[in-house]
Write a protein that binds this DNA or RNA. Structure first.
Lengths: 150, 150
DNA sequence: TATTTTTTGCAAATTAGTTGCAATTTCATC
DNA sequence: GATGAAATTGCAACTAATTTGCAAAAAATA
């Protein structure tokens, strides 16, 4: 799979083979959805978005869990107690900032944590990954707040 | 509350007042535990560590949730589907790296994300916070793995 | 101290996620 | 392409974490 273009059916099959996962209906459907849309989505949102009856919820959980193990999908904890899943585009490392009031999600590129990863590798860790989530109050919400109070 | 010393009963009362939370048995117990020990702990671990019968589990969840809202406690998602809570010492900003094999947790100081927070504040966000979690395979586990395979 | 407000403990409910299992599908080999 | 072993699925039952309703108790306020 080349970087920087949309994932075709072919690409998805190739990805599954590359990761030594057998090619099944549910897996294809889930990857098709996650590669085509930005997400991040909860397991339930994925279930809702797939054609009705095309895939059992248990299979979604099982597939997502395998995808995470194989680093095809990554988890984001954007809100307390809500697990979001997102396709891990190899050429699009990013994080999110969520507004604590309106819950708008924006993407952050260039997190600058690579340096920290290198440091950890120097002290013996291998294959270091990170998960970063940010919260703030966005400009719009700040304006609303001020206009309400004063 | 001055920085850099242990939290006394007094400090805990002061903290609760400062955050406009009424002073109750469960809240004092939970904060006493979380300020005294490193953690991070799950809600259930906190329950186990408190004197038997001293505090209902529902109250632990309710208190923790309020503490998080008030920024007294912070959440860490060290493992999938496990929520850990940790006292947010104002002078001890840190993160964790968890070994993906032995699950050993180490503390990371100096994460370098402050720069990113400043950038976000420049584009209109206020009160930006972050949550960073890292995973890697620790040196010991790498050695074990190699000695098993080769 | 009396009154109002908040919090608690308990039990029941909810929810996300997991599991056992028989039926089905995929894969590897012929 | 057929064949059998291995992996995966859908379903339903289950589990574990967290939440909720409510009456009693405790804390804050007047």
């Amino acid at each position: 799979m080349k970087h920087g273009h949309k994932y075709s059916e072919e690409d998805i099959l190739e990805l599954l083979k590359e990761k030594k996962l057998s090619i099944t209906g549910p897996r294809k459907l889930i990857l098709k959805l996650l590669t085509a849309e930005h997400g991040p989505y909860t397991a339930d949102e994925i279930f809702q978005k797939l054609p009705k009856g095309s895939c059992d919820k248990a299979s979604i959980y099982r597939s997502l869990s395998q995808f995470v193990d194989k680093d095809i999908v990554q988890i984001a904890h954007l809100e307390k107690d809500v697990v979001h899943y997102e396709f891990n585009h190899p050429d699009d490392h990013h994080h999110h900032i969520v507004c604590r009031l309106c819950h708008k999600v924006e993407v952050i590129h260039d997190c600058g944590i690579e340096r920290l990863e290198r440091t950890l590798e120097k002290v013996g860790y291998t294959n270091v990954k990170h998960r970063l989530e940010m919260v703030g109050t966005c400009e719009k919400c700040n304006l609303n707040k001020n206009s309400r109070n004063g």
